[in-house]
């Protein structure tokens, strides 16, 4: 079967992906994984991860520097907490928590990085396929946390909790 489609957000200072990717940011080892470089893992707003899933990706991961060695001191710890919070929030909406991952690899830790990505892909492959047609996010009202219940077709029944903590 097809490999799950994944978007990976990699910190500029974490694992170097030059040579691992083609021009479009596809990992050559796993062509279904696309890498997007960001200034720091802590730059990722959880909304964007949610949006990535909603736009049709099967999974998303963020890669920061090893814990304790963030160039910006705390970006990777903060992001780990945010990913955990987002996973909890999503699982309340029947989106599997396993679709999100936080990895931490230094600039020269490529083998371990690829290993972790492969593990993540296996985990995704074991999950039931994502809901086939998730509509794209409607134009977000300016302000306010993640858009509300109308964009949750993945939840089969109405047992969604609209109250959610801000990330």
């Amino acid at each position: 079967m097809a490999e799950p489609k994944v978007v990976g957000f990699v910190c500029d200072w974490a694992v170097a992906t030059e040579g691992l990717t083609d021009g479009d940011g596809r990992l050559s080892a796993h062509p279904s994984v696309r890498i997007v470089r960001v200034p720091c893992s802590g730059f990722m707003r959880p909304d964007w991860l949610e949006e990535t899933l909603r736009a049709g990706a099967d999974g998303a991961f963020v890669t920061g520097c090893p814990y304790g060695d963030c160039l910006n001191r705390e970006g990777n710890y903060l992001m780990r907490d945010r990913v955990e919070q987002l996973a909890r929030r999503l699982s309340r909406r029947r989106v599997e928590a396993g679709r999100l991952a936080m990895l931490a690899h230094g600039l020269h830790d490529r083998p371990a990085f690829l290993e972790d990505v492969a593990t993540f892909l296996q985990r995704l492959a074991a999950l039931p396929p994502a809901a086939p047609s998730r509509p794209a996010r409607p134009a977000a009202p300016a302000g306010g946390p993640a858009p509300a219940a109308s964009t949750r077709p993945a939840a089969p029944t109405g047992s969604v909790t609209p109250s959610e903590e801000s990330p």
Binding site: V7, G25, P31, S32, V36, W48, T52, A55, A57
Partner: peptide, 17 residues
């Protein structure tokens, strides 16, 4: 960033449907 996410999600990977 959102443009890049949209690109990454929309573009078919070479070996996947």
């Amino acid at each position: 960033l959102t443009r890049r996410i949209a690109q990454a999600v929309a573009a078919p990977a070479s070996q996947t449907v």
